[in-house]
Nucleic acid binder design. Structure first.
Length: 828
RNA sequence: GCCGAAGUGGUGGAACGGUAUACACGCAACGCUUAGGACGUUGUGCCUUCGGGUAUAGGGGUUCGACUCCCCUCUUCGGCACCA
């Protein structure tokens, strides 16, 4: 016991040591599937087992726990599970460094984190614990992959992909941020590889549409990020004929109305179309240009201010509306994998095309009338169509004078009628690349046979377990370490029995986390991935608490999985998370904590100094959950002092313990404040304003203290009631202190499973309220009045007030606004 | 460039269109103390001639009344970005 603790008689560390074994015995947070009570499923993003828990974990868990514990108190059956996202690169890299197996590192860290979680006092149901790296779990990840494949939603294709040279593996688009690897920050390059994809694009429209449903209960920034990421744009496909080629070149444009201003075509330099179209005369120039572009990094290519480059392919295409022959160029400002990889060049309406046309001296025709004061180059705003067609040009289409929207639909109608194009919708979202050339992940359960092609591993042979590899065997070498495990890779084809090889890639770990929330509902079922009846009973999750960094990663993938599984008839809902709460970061001295800055704050040190409850309280009281917390500006010492003040109340109460929360008589003012605090706290927790909820509890503690010291005294039943409510509300953030108070108040352990008291409505009615009297909108007087005072009486009382009369100063009263019983505003 | 969120005391932050600055931290004075990262009391936006005046990034507007709603500007943060 430290010197400080001795003085106040409250030893936080002894209290923690005292209650942990008691709670283990009580196991108060085990969810009962069969309970008749209404169910609640709060979920928090499960951690990756890297080392011990840190301040970030501490914050998100503390916030999450307020909600979970609140629901228990309100009488719901709460399922609050926890597990580990335990496949992934850090363990593999550590294994290479230490000549070990990734599992050693992973499962050791899981145990460390497990014990830290328990000590941290989060109300988890540990009977549902899972690890995605367990064969019992990834067996079903493989099962899901095969089911997706049967539905055509998992497929292989050859395509240029993102390659992280540091991690030696490919990455999904979502894992490339500003041209860099989301994990390690290395500059991503491109490689042409045959890889597995999930067809998330098939769900693009529904993923977008359902954001409208989620918008009221999901954070704006997540909804917006997903909308941007999905990137729907409406436009048209236009077919440009090429002499001597059967198939036309099809472009995607959002501005079909600018077709009359199309003076050239541009094809992505790295596309198959460019390779095919280039004429012999231009081939040398084209290939030189292509090499030049390939040598440039993505970072260089992404710079929007670099000059336009390109090569004339030496052919022409026919404008489907005007019949004009226009040149076809190759360039790197057109992306091979967006739209059709071919763009119609409209320099008058697109700045990039303008720059290209200017550089290569191609004609420029405006097709939208810019405003009179327009002094820019390409104009893409609103305006009447012009030069469409230009005077004297023969064309079946004339949209001159039409505003943009009308011109677009008229053009699309013409294209469809003439069979040269059609209205269409394009998405920015690409299919999800799921193969990874690393070891510590789920093996892809496919066998490649020269005779039979791709053959799925039979369901009865799942799980397909990882071979035992360790240390140097795991060194990245551009192909998966599994490929070198010859005993494992070489198999007989399940279909023809001939020699075949296993797919040697493993799955992106985001696949594992796309369905773990389903597995929690029946974590030990060894006959199926999840029990649909149980999942449908518990889900969707009522709240999902976690970091906003997953806005377009995990949260998009999990939504996709849910929709597919619903289409498979396994779920009766199509969105997994009904509501979502993002927490901010814990930073230090204005900067993100990092080793290089040397400003890391150790959670262990903070817990040792201030105790679990004070740290949790500090994190929750700091401000709104989604705001960042600068730990340097927090005062966990102040939190500890508050907890001690609260704790002291429980020792001062001298009335006899009975049924909790039943006060007969006693100090009415305190009873009213207790009732008001309970009512407000419920509303505040439900709207995630936990910091304000704690402020209300602090006020109640202060009021109770006053009542003991200078009011009704420690024997008053209202004091006991208030102290009990303090203990109960405090259990949401400071479970040890709350439990200790509860015991000192004479109750059996288990304040966290006590029940929220019914509030007597009579106690919520105030005897008097303060009415404010304003003159010209400025406060000039205050009146203590009955809450049911009539408007006329309040007005009379206000006008009779001396200070008010002084402010009126004999002027004529033109109007009096009365909002009984709170306010009167006198207008002169 | 496009889209979104936000700017309140020395600090973290409160505030259904109706008392701006709740609750804390910090600071100051006093009390209790051998002592204090302890406890308690009081004070604490700014200006003031003590009547008041004035303040929610800046400027307009709506309203009897605006931190709150609308418009413009500035700043910060986030998303997307050569996406046709």
């Amino acid at each position: 016991m430290s010197e400080r603790d001795e003085q106040v008689g409250y030893d936080v560390h002894a209290t923690e040591a005292k209650w942990l074994p008691v709670w283990d015995e009580l196991d108060p947070f085990r969810a009962d599937d069969a309970s008749p009570k209404e169910k609640r499923y709060p979920l928090t993003m499960f951690p990756y087992p890297s080392g011990d828990l840190h301040m970030g974990h501490a914050e998100v868990m503390a916030l999450h726990d307020v909600i979970a514990r609140y629901w228990w108190l309100r009488g719901y059956e709460v399922m609050n599970p926890m597990g580990w996202d335990s496949f992934g690169l850090p363990a593999e890299n550590a294994a290479i460094r230490n000549d070990a197996h990734p599992a050693e590192y992973t499962y050791a860290n899981i145990e460390t984190q497990y014990h830290s979680f328990k000590k941290y006092g989060i109300a988890f149901d540990w009977s549902r614990r899972l690890h995605t790296s367990d064969p019992e779990y990834y067996r079903w990840t493989q099962w899901l992959f095969l089911k997706f494949r049967e539905r055509g939603l998992a497929y292989r294709k050859n395509s240029p992909v993102n390659w992280c040279p540091n991690d030696q593996t490919v990455l999904a688009n979502e894992q490339v941020v500003d041209g860099k690897c989301e994990r390690c920050g290395a500059e991503v390059t491109k490689r042409e590889l045959t890889q597995w994809y999930f067809k998330i694009t098939e769900y693009a429209q529904e993923l977008l549409d359902d954001l409208d449903v989620l918008a009221p209960t999901w954070p704006d920034r997540v909804v917006t990020a997903q909308r941007n990421w999905i990137g729907r744009s409406e436009g048209a496909h236009l077919d440009f004929r090429i002499a001597g080629r059967d198939e036309p070149l099809t472009v995607f444009t959002t501005r079909p109305d600018t077709i009359f201003g199309t003076t050239f075509m541009v094809v992505a330099v790295d596309s198959a179309a460019a390779e095919e179209l280039v004429t012999d005369g231009q081939r040398a120039a084209f290939e030189a240009y292509r090499e030049e572009i390939r040598a440039a990094s993505d970072i260089e290519r992404l710079a929007t201010d670099r000059p336009k480059t390109g090569v004339d392919l030496g052919i022409t295409a026919t404008n489907p509306v005007t019949g004009d022959e226009i040149p076809v160029w190759a360039t790197d400002y057109v992306l091979a994998d967006y739209g059709t990889g071919i763009v119609m060049g409209v320099p008058g309406g697109d700045q990039r095309d303008w720059e290209f046309a200017t550089k290569f001296e191609l004609p420029i025709i405006r097709t939208t009338e810019p405003p009179a004061d327009w002094d820019g180059e390409a104009y893409n705003g609103e305006g009447a169509a012009i030069n469409s067609p230009a005077t004297g040009t023969a064309s079946g289409l004339d949209i001159n004078g039409m505003p943009v929207a009308e011109a677009k639909s008229a053009t699309i109608a013409f294209l469809e009628q003439s069979g040269t194009g059609r209205g269409t919708v394009n998405f920015r979202l690409r299919d999800w690349l799921l193969s990874r050339q690393r070891y510590w992940g789920v093996p892809i359960p496919i066998i490649h046979c020269d005779t039979c092609g791709e053959v799925p591993v039979p369901y009865d042979q799942l799980p397909l377990e990882l071979p035992e590899l360790k240390g140097a065997d795991l060194k990245p070498k551009g192909v998966s370490p599994l490929a070198a495990a010859t005993d494992w890779v070489n198999v007989d084809c399940p279909s023809c029995g001939g020699p075949a090889t296993r797919d040697s890639d493993t799955m992106d770990t985001f696949v594992d986390s796309s369905w773990y929330f389903l597995r929690y509902c029946s974590p030990n079922d060894d006959t199926q991935a999840f029990d649909s009846a149980l999942v449908n009973a518990w889900m969707p999750c009522d709240i999902y608490v976690g970091g906003v960094e997953h806005a377009v990663l995990h949260l998009l993938y999990a939504r996709f999985f849910t929709k597919v599984l619903a289409d498979m008839g396994l779920l009766d809902f199509r969105e997994p998370f009904a509501a979502q709460l993002n927490q901010g970061f814990v930073i230090n001295r204005g900067k993100k904590m990092s080793k290089s800055l040397g400003n890391g704050v150790s959670l262990g040190d903070q817990l040792a100094e201030f105790g679990v409850d004070a740290v949790r309280l500090t994190l929750v009281f700091a401000g709104p959950p989604e705001d960042d917390i600068d730990w340097a500006e927090m005062s966990p010492g102040g939190s500890l002092r508050f907890l001690q003040r609260a704790w002291r109340l429980s020792g001062d109460v001298t009335s006899t313990a009975g049924t909790p929360f039943v006060a007969e008589g006693g100090d009415v003012a305190l009873r009213k404040q207790t009732a008001r605090t309970l009512t407000d706290a419920a509303e505040l927790v439900e709207s995630y304003r936990f910091n304000v909820m704690i402020a209300r509890v602090m006020e109640l503690v202060n009021a109770t203290r006053k009542t003991i010291d200078s009011g009704a005294g420690p024997t008053d039943p209202a004091v006991r009631e208030a102290a009990e409510v303090v203990a109960m509300l405090l259990s949401l953030v400071a479970p040890y202190t709350a439990e200790e108070m509860w015991e000192r108040l004479g109750h059996q352990p288990g304040v966290a499973r006590s029940s929220w008291p019914e509030v007597d409505p009579a106690l919520l009615v105030e005897d008097t309220v303060t009415a404010v009297v304003q003159v010209q909108g400025k406060v000039r007087g205050r009146l203590e009045v009955s809450p049911d005072i009539s408007e006329a009486d309040l007005e009379a009382a206000a006008l009779a007030d001396e200070a008010v009369q002084r402010a009126i100063d004999g002027a004529e009263v033109r109007k009096v606004i009365v909002r009984a019983p709170k306010l009167v505003n006198i207008v002169l």
